[in-house]
Design a protein around this nucleic acid. Structure first.
Length: 646
RNA sequence: GCCACUGUGGCUCAGGGGUAGAGCAAUUCGCUCGUAAUGAAUAGGUCGAGGGUUCGAUUCCCUCCAGUGGCUCCA
């Protein structure tokens, strides 16, 4: 007998040599039905695992992330099996579980159409209905390669060959006639995957490299119950309604025009207003925190980028003006602000007394992104960023870094986005060093410092290998858009290499010259991207302080227009963004339109308001608030704006 | 850059080898109205651009441009 410590701390004695599945069955039939995999001593394992010593034993159902992964992974095998049924010549790539479902990559002559996906779904239904048991078996690397070659699966052979060197047996899963190279874990039977849906079919490079062949990837999702699947699909539909790219255009915040070009959005008056408000907010906040404002050129000679290294590491991404072969001088629009802002420091000799020097700039940048990269306001070719560089001594580095994190968090908190972000410590990839400048020692030092600082700050972060800038490690503050795609909103970077390249020195207290550390950072990130996230966060219904139009005044009849204009003038004197809807329309119609435009407050003025010198207030969110004096209204608006209430 | 899909009046969309429709929006007129849609009339489109096939193309084919979903990339 062996002892299992269950999740609730209780001890269960079972015979040695049983599989996890048999043990779970012994605990309860209901639990067995729901079980997707187990955790043995904290490690995710397959239900088929034989348990023959004391351990911590936790059953993972679909409610856990690990359970979902096993569930979706099994769904992906069902997909592959169905595709093989219908298209025997298709070659298999990989098919993992992802955040919200699964995918499988196939090498097929012609990419799948949506009609074909429906047929594949039907085939999958049969496999689920047959409730095929999944069996795991292991082969020696030689036997495994033989099997995969017999199956004529070149991509699997490639994967297997890589594992073969490790001296471990190769794991396979088999369901019916379908066998797949796979480490698991998996469900016990295909019958558990009751509700699934294939969502899309796209191209994807084999092993994620554009040098490789493009395979056809089918994305899908699956749930134990039909109702859960329906809920998920409903959430996807609702997400589409919040999509900034749709809503932002509908609300006339921005647009794009063919003849201007890709990734070059037009900010319409309302969108431009929000960005102006954000920009003033950020610039004022930075001024309070000791930043000095700079304004530097949008382009420079190639010489500047040659010093910074951008010319060699990033030329493809730059808009270069002129021909290097023919022209004496070649210019390029700036893809970043760094070397421009360094010139401020270099303007005269600096002493340690000048440090820390905090430079801030609302900086417009140009990046020649690949044509397939552009997306609404999230990924564009020209954007404006709350850029800044802090130049400091090694002793000041931690405090300055903390200040940057605090500023970023303060901005995010005010905007209401803090609850949605995650932190990523972006490191270099030593196996891919042509992407980076500097030595191993310099990278170890910079990354070591950042790690120490992050741990001191108590920030929970993930690690992104190969996500660093070419000159140093980053703390990236990440956010997911409405479709679940993650992007960097804010970045804070430590750089000890560019100061040296640019000959930036300060005279220390002992009279020696030293290279400072530089922190590259944004405080709100780029305004376009942040606006996109705000549109999605608030579904276009911005908090009062950000709303491009804050109040709509609605006179009921023409005879109320004079008094309405009077009220509007008083609001404008308070810097409230408002306008009068003086069209000869009914109140209900004007209110409907203001609601659809998501204007926070409507003021309705009729006979009684004119007589009593009051205003009837309607809130976008809470409806009719009744009649109040202008003073009460003014107080309410002022308070709400000053506190940046959400 | 790669794979796929899409492009018809300001917006949402229908149509389809014989040169175009609907609703909303807009404009004008009437109604002067109390918290999410007043009625009528009018105007508005080289069917994304260029080329080809055809007696004839918005419709079929090619190229380009732009949008969307992915992949790759993202200092």
């Amino acid at each position: 007998m062996i002892k299992l410590t269950l999740k609730d701390g209780s001890i269960r004695e079972v015979e040695s040599g049983l599989s996890a599945a048999e043990i779970v069955k012994g605990i309860g039939a209901g639990l067995y039905k729901a079980a997707c995999c187990v955790k043995i001593n904290g490690e995710v394992r397959d239900l088929r695992t034989i348990i023959n010593e004391d351990c911590e034993f936790e059953v993972m159902t679909f409610d856990s992330d690990e359970g979902k992964k096993a569930f979706w992974h099994t769904a992906s095998h069902i997909l592959a099996q169905a595709v093989k049924h219908l298209y025997p010549n298709v070659k298999l790539g990989i098919g993992p579980a992802i955040d919200n479902g699964f995918y499988y990559d196939f090498d097929t002559e012609n990419p799948f159409t949506m009609e074909e996906l429906a047929a594949i779904e039907n085939e999958m239904k049969k496999i689920v209905k047959d409730a095929m048991p999944l069996e795991q078996f292991e082969l020696s690397p030689e036997e495994a390669l033989k099997l995969l070659n017999e199956q004529n699966e070149p991509y699997k052979v490639e994967l297997c060959e890589e594992h073969a060197g490790k001296g471990e047996p190769i794991s396979f899963y088999k369901q019916g006639e379908f066998t797949d190279l796979c480490a698991g874990p998996h469900l016990m039977t295909t019958g558990t995957v009751k509700a699934f849906k294939l969502l899309s079919c796209t191209g994807a490079y084999w092993r994620g490299s554009e040098k490789n062949k493009m395979l056809s990837r089918i994305y899908g999702t699956a749930y134990p119950k039909v109702s859960q699947l329906e809920e998920h699909l409903k959430r996807l539909e609702e997400a589409k309604l919040r999509d900034h790219n749709k809503l932002g255009r509908e609300l006339e915040l921005f647009t794009t025009v063919d003849i201007i070009g890709q990734g070059l959005p037009i900010l319409l008056p309302k969108g431009a207003k929000i960005i102006q408000i954000l920009q003033r907010f950020v610039e004022d906040e930075e001024a309070k925190r000791g930043y000095l404002l700079t304004k530097t050129p949008l382009m420079a000679k190639s010489d500047l980028y040659k010093i910074s290294g951008h010319w060699f590491h990033y030329k493809e991404g730059m808009f270069v003006m002129g021909d290097e072969e023919k022209d004496d001088e070649v210019f390029a629009l700036r893809p970043m602000t760094c070397p421009f802002q360094y010139q401020v420091f270099l303007n005269r000799q600096r002493s340690y007394r000048d440090l820390p020097m905090r430079l801030g700039e609302t900086s417009t940048l140009f990046r020649n992104e690949d044509s397939g990269e552009m997306h609404g306001l999230i990924r564009v070719r020209q954007f404006t960023i709350s850029e800044g560089h802090l130049i400091c001594t090694p002793e000041q580095l931690e405090d300055e870094f903390r200040g940057c994190v605090e500023l970023a968090n303060y901005i995010l908190e005010t905007l209401g986005l803090l609850e949605d972000v995650t932190y990523r410590f972006s490191k270099w990839d030593p196996d891919n060093r042509e992407k980076y400048i500097g030595t191993d020692e310099q990278w170890d030092e910079a990354q070591g410092m950042m790690e120490k600082i992050l741990d001191h700050l108590g920030i929970k972060y993930s690690i992104g290998i190969g996500e660093a800038a070419f000159y140093g490690p980053k703390l990236d503050i990440q956010i997911k858009n409405v479709h679940g795609k993650e992007d960097t909103l804010i970045t804070i970077q430590i750089d000890q290499m560019l100061a040296e390249k640019f000959g930036m020195e300060y005279v220390d207290a002992d009279g020696t010259k030293k290279n400072p550390y530089i922190i590259h950072r944004t405080s709100l990130g780029c305004y376009e991207r942040t606006l996109a996230l705000l549109i999605e966060k608030y579904a276009g219904a911005f908090p009062l302080w950000l709303a491009p139009e804050q109040v709509k005044l609605i006179p009921i009849a023409d005879r109320h227009l004079d008094y309405t204009n009077e009220v509007a003038e008083k609001l404008k004197a308070m810097n409230i963004r408002c306008s009068v809807d003086d069209r000869a329309e009914k109140v209900g119609y004007k209110i409907r339109q203001a609601q659809l435009e998501k204007i926070p407050y409507m003021i309705i003025i009729g006979d009684s308001e004119v007589q009593e010198k009051t205003v009837a207030v309607r809130s976008r969110r809470d409806g009719d608030l009744g009649t109040m004096s202008f003073g009460e209204l003014a107080e309410r608006l002022t308070e709400e704006i000053a506190t940046k209430k959400r």
